[in-house]
């Protein structure tokens, strides 16, 4: 089913969640990470998820990324049912549609930048060449460097190149600048913005950093497992314009 966005009527819905809850059993304590999330994410939009620790933003991202399943409620990506418990289905979903960028990059230390990207392009159906993906993040001169030979910002850009090389439909980023200084963080955010702009990849970024919200189409604030507020930016700032 295709629904219309209230603010971007030309855009199709990518994700739709209804009544999503997530309860973790931590020893003898039940932790309610999500307490009923109803949300649509639209194709090609850039969303920033804000919220304090424990607000449920990571849990939501994990569920959208097919890494976790809700305790109750439904999650759909186009015609994929992500509330399923079937591991193989979720793996295929991740493989075909999702690009991940992690706070700690999670590069494979034994592979060069190019090979880290190739790791993903080798299993993708319609990937771009690894060199092209690395060019998109301005790393053409670092193709054969191992992670230990790269700075933090460069490692994160390799991770972004790895995430986008398969031309994913969605790019999910969990604190992508969390381990970086300001100037490096801006370079990384610019890479994300460029990918979103040039490839039209739906992008969701989790962050503590309120400043990043300026570059989003929409800013979704979570608090205590619920959506507290959704803010629509009338105009997106470029990362260089952000003030931290």
């Amino acid at each position: 089913m295709i629904a219309r966005s209230p603010h971007r009527t030309d855009t199709e819905v990518a994700f739709r969640t209804r009544g999503v809850t997530k309860v973790y059993q931590m020893g003898e304590v039940q932790v309610h990470a999500l307490r009923g999330i109803d949300l649509e994410l639209y194709k090609g939009e850039f969303v920033v998820l804000l919220g304090p620790s424990g607000s449920g933003k990571s849990t939501l991202l994990n569920i959208l990324g097919g890494l976790d399943v809700p305790t109750s409620g439904t999650v759909n990506y186009e015609d994929h049912d992500l509330s399923t418990f079937r591991e193989a289905v979720l793996t295929r979903y991740r493989r075909e549609h999702v690009g991940f960028v992690f706070q700690f990059y999670n590069l494979i230390p034994s592979l060069t930048a190019r090979e880290n990207v190739a790791l993903v392009t080798e299993i993708a159906t319609n990937p771009m060449p690894p060199d092209e993906a690395l060019a998109l993040v301005n790393l053409s001169d670092r193709l054969d460097h191992f992670p230990a030979q790269l700075s933090g910002g460069e490692q994160q850009r390799v991770a972004i190149a790895r995430a986008i090389a398969k031309r994913p439909d969605v790019l999910l980023c969990d604190e992508p600048t969390g381990a970086l200084d300001i100037s490096t963080g801006i370079v990384v955010l610019e890479a994300l913005a460029r990918v979103n702009r040039d490839l039209g990849t739906t992008t969701a970024v989790i962050t503590h950093n309120v400043a990043i919200a300026g570059m989003a189409d929409r800013v979704i604030r979570l608090s205590d497992g619920r959506i507290a507020d959704i803010e629509i930016n009338s105009s997106r700032q470029s990362p260089a314009e952000l003030s931290w």
Partner: peptide
């Protein structure tokens, strides 16, 4: 385990 889990997140199957 971290590497392998990262690969799983990136869409690698258990077999791979």
């Amino acid at each position: 385990s971290r590497e392998l889990a990262s690969l799983r997140v990136l869409g690698y199957t258990r077999g791979e």
